[in-house]
Structure formats: structure tokens, C-alpha cells
Design a protein around this nucleic acid. Sequence first.
RNA 1: GCGUCCGUAGCUCAAUUGGAUAGAGCAUUUGACUUCGGAUCAAACGGUUGAGGGUUCGAAUCCUUCCGGACGCACCA
Length: 614
Amino acid sequence: MLLKTQLQHWVSEIVHLIYEKSIEPQSISVEYTNPDHPGDFTVILFPFLKLKIGNPQEIGNTIGNYLIEKKEIFESFEIIKGFLNLTLKTNYWLNFLQNLSPDTIQAQEKQTIMIEYSSPNTNKPLHLGHLRNIFLGDSVSRIYDFLGHQVIKACLVNDRGIHICKSMLAWKLYGNGETPQSTKIKGDHFVGKYYVEFEKHFQKEYQEWQQSSNAEAIFLQAATKNPNLEKQAFFKEYKDQYFNLYSELGKQARELLQKWEQNDPETIQLWKMMNQWVYEGFEQTYKRLHIHFDKFYYESQTYLLGKEWVLKGLEKGVFYQKPDGSIWINLTSEGLDHKVVLRSDGTSVYVTQDIGTAYLKAHEYNMHRSVYVIGNEQDYHMKVLISICKKLGIPHADGMYHLSYGMVELPTGKMKSREGTVVDADDLVQEMYDIAKDTSEELGKTEGLPADELHNLYETLGLGALKYFLLKIEPTKKILFDPKESINFTGNTAPFIQYTYARIQSLLSKADSMNIQWKNFADITSLHSTEKALCVQLSKWENTVFLSAEQYNPSIIANYALELAQFYGTFYQNHKILADDNPKKDFQLFLSYQVARTLKTALNLLGIGVINRM
RNA sequence: GCGUCCGUAGCUCAAUUGGAUAGAGCAUUUGACUUCGGAUCAAACGGUUGAGGGUUCGAAUCCUUCCGGACGCACCA
């Protein structure tokens, strides 16, 4: 049991014993003592006022004296303004440090948890927004896996729909048969190029159409309802309708989608070929990011399944049908709205395929929880999906959870693939590598390392900086990324933590070469404030991991690691550990060793590697 | 218009989930390597926590009303 909870129980017992009042242990406020005051743990005495058993000073004295007398771990106490500050004996911390095992924490109840993330479209390469999604999902997976749960990392590939057909059509029209091989362009970028190409031609076609008499008539009709309507603004809004009603390219793209749904062999072949190019590109990117999935789902394989569930739900009365044949659900009792689940022409919509996928997942894996890492723009959609799944009685629907996160924005606003205003994932990773290389060479501390180790070093530093940049911020908040200011390598960054780790490794190996036996350190009588700060921080580790798992929030671990590294920096500066006349040498080395272990574990849970020399 | 999320130092973020004098990094200014790694450390500067009201021993945190921002409210995905 954590000392904090232990203390709650003790205080509860004391109150019961001495004052004959009962108070729930959980309701007793116990905190880590604020560093400005002496002590390790603080019991807040104000809540006892309600029990009418005396003033805070008296109660504090009683509790403090009792604890000192009966529990051997306490050394002293002090009461300041209703706060009972308890100081632990040095011995307690020495024992704690000796037994600390930061890399083996286990959850009490083991579960099977599926975590779906990345979820790319197959018509364009990955960008910075995907990276946040991927790193979040990967980190949460690592955290649950670390705690002993069985984790299934799933990736849902959005491989069908009109957007894919746009790329396909553009390739047919303007591609002249070129391929990633012939152009030496990475497959996903190659296909993305044609997606942008489609958009360019479509825009041109749209511009020309706006000069036509037909367009003029449509605008004039709209203007009769709204005399202030400006032509430019109107056509900006009208784009989607133009695509659906008048566009030649739009018509061809829709025809392609229909052919695809009818299993036209030529179309299917083209679709498979282009998807394959994209998958090969993704594969390279995932590999470089050290991302691996246990299971892939493809929407092309689940959307029909969703349809079956909708028809089943209609029979059961979960859904209702409108005269035009479309099928709906009424979610007003959940505070949501009515929602279409099947079009009047019988084709599936967005939620339909998600229902299918949810069922397939539950059918294939007997899991307790199913986590979806998806941006907050889909908060409403996910609420709808989860309530539908519950109403349909899809297994484990109660365990569905939407891990929602904020967008990554540029100073110019939101990233848009169609308009080419995105930060490409591959480019950014390479840029981080280059910065790591330049910085490293400038500092000149890695001379003599072989080429493959250097490559590994730059990769670990560059990727680490990038992952930490995206993970240190709470998922719900949006992130602003300014491409002009590259991601830092000093201060609140992964390289800073990696540097602290490397420094400790170098210290320990030097100690080893001096034949210092630090693994069994001799007892010492008192702790320096910097040593105490490290012990306290280390004692918070276990709870930090549980908290970040519970909240699906890696930023808690990121902030923890940063603080630990900062405390170590202060400690390091205050002591000449390896000096001949240092009586605490072995203790301080062991403390350093435990800090390094914890840092390594923490970074690992974020998907960030450590380095022995940098 | 309705719904969800957000607003903390010039900038980017914290704050032990209601606790003590709101803390870090960046930027600016200053100091620290003949001894364990300067991608570091120490210090200065910087705040009416968007504004008002409420709840209580105690509020950045909970409630409420405004102000400002993002996203959603498609037979698009």
C-alpha cells in the first residue's frame, strides 16, 4: 500500500480510538509536503473541524504524538496553520530506495484492452496531426502493456470512399502510367501527389464553370433570397454542391466509386495497386517511428457488416425507417439528436461502417476495453457511435472509450491536405534527425563513435525530441506548431532528459572502473535536501504511472520525467560524488542509479529511447 | 441558434484533481568549468489565473452570468 493511503488509515484509526468518531480514510486529506516547509507528508487538519473534537492545533498534536510513539517510521512533526507536517526517518528513505523497482509495476486486475490509433486514409501521406495521434496511441499502449495488461494495437485503414477515387481518377487522367518505382517517389507521397493534382484540375474546372450562364443563373436565384450576397463568397460555399451536381470530374469520380462498389475488375485492380503503393510508404514511416500494429482493420471489409447490424437493429426496434427508406435512430433521450444510419438508397454512411468495425473487434477479441484515439472534432460522432453500439447490444460496448485529443495547428491555422498546408511527417522526422546531427557535431562530444552508432544517436535524439514535444501537452489541448521555430533540444525536452540519463551512465561506469561497490551502500544518518527531493520524487513514480493509465494521459509521465531530471541536475551540481573524501559516495551512486532506471522507464513509456553517450 | 472543449508570465506549458507564498522551459539580463559530461547549474526580470458574482476554513480548479477562441450540429468520411 502507498504510504499516503496507509497514513489515511492510521489517522482514521487514531480519530476513532481517541475521539471515538468515525471518519472514512479516503476523506482524509494527505498531501506531499510543500517543499517550502519541513516534512514529507502533510495531514490537512481543517476537515476535522466538522467533527467538533477540538481546534486544529490540538488535534494535530494528538495525531502527531501518537504517530511518533506507535509508528517507527516517523521522526518528528510540526503544525503550521492547520497543516500537520510529518517528517520520516532517514532510514525509511534508505529502505525505500533499496527496494525500489521502477521498471516492474503491475496492475492488480489484468485486462485485455484494444487501442485503435493512426487510422490513416489511403489517399495521402501522414502529417504532423497523424503523428500526435500515433504517438498518443503508442504511448498509451506501452503504459498498459507495462502494467501487465494484454494490449492489442489496432489500426483502422480508411481505404474506401470518394477521396480515394479522386486520387485514382487523377492518376488515370494525368498519370501517363508512371509509378513510385519509375519516379522514385515514396508510395504514399506519390498517391498524395495525385490527390492534390485532382484538386488542382477540379478548381480550374470550377473557376471556368463560374463564367458560364448556368452558374450565373444559379447565383442570381440565390441572390433573390439574399440581396447582399457576394458572388465570390457564394461560390466558395457552393463548391461541394457543384462537385455533386455539375462537375465533370466529380461525375467521373462518382462513377469510379460506383464501379468500385460493383466490384468492377479493372477498378478494383487499380484500387489495389494504388493502395499497395500507399501501404508500402506507410510501412517505411511506421518502421522509422518504431510503431508496430498487432491488427489491421479495413473499412472496405467492415462497411457491409455494419449494414447487417443496422437491419438487425431495425427488426429489434432500435432503429426506425422513414418513408423514403432511410433508416434512423432517435438518440434524444441521451441528449443527442436523430441520426441517419443507412441512406435511402441503401448505402452505408460513416457510422454504419464504424458499427461494423466495432462488432468485428468485439467478435474477434474478448476484450474489456476498446479505446479509440481520434481527434476532438469527432467528439459528437463518437458519442453517437458508442450509444448506438450499446443499444444494439454489441459485446463490450460498455468498454468503449474515446481518447479525444486537440488538433495540431500552424500559425496560419488548421492543416489541410487538399490545400497542401500540412507539415509532412517524413519531412519533419528527417529535419529532426538533421538538427540532432548538427547539434551533436557542434558540441563535438561524440568523436570516435562508429557510424552506425552515430546514426542511431541522431535518430533517438531527433525522434525523442519530436515525440516529447507532442506528448508533454495534455491530450485535450490543441498544439501550436511553428515550422519557423524548430523544436527545441534544450530545456523542457526529451534531449534534456536523455542527457541526464547519459550523464548518470557515464558517472556509474566511471565509478565501476574505480572499483566502487555502490550497490550495497552503507547507512547514512541524514539526507541533503537535494537527495531528499529525489527520494520523494522517486516515491511518486508508481502512482504517476497508474494515474496516466487511468486518464489515458502520457503527459503526466512526461512532466514527471522532466521534474526528476531537473531535481537530479540540482543534486548533481551540489555534490562531487566521486571525490575521495565524500563519505556518501556509495549512497549517492545508488541514488543516481535508481534515478536513471526510472528515467529510462519513463521515456520508454513515451516511446522514447535512451543513450549512453551523446 | 444549440452542443462540446478551451482561456494561467511576452511565448509554450505545469500546478499532487479543492490546500500553504500559482511553478518550469523559451526569450531578456547576470554569474558558474585546472576535479564526476556546460544539450548543464545558480540568480534577476516577468501574474488581479479572460471579467464579475456565488459555494467554504481555503478556489486557477466546483456552480452561475458575461467576454473571447476552437470544434461539431450532412443521406461527406
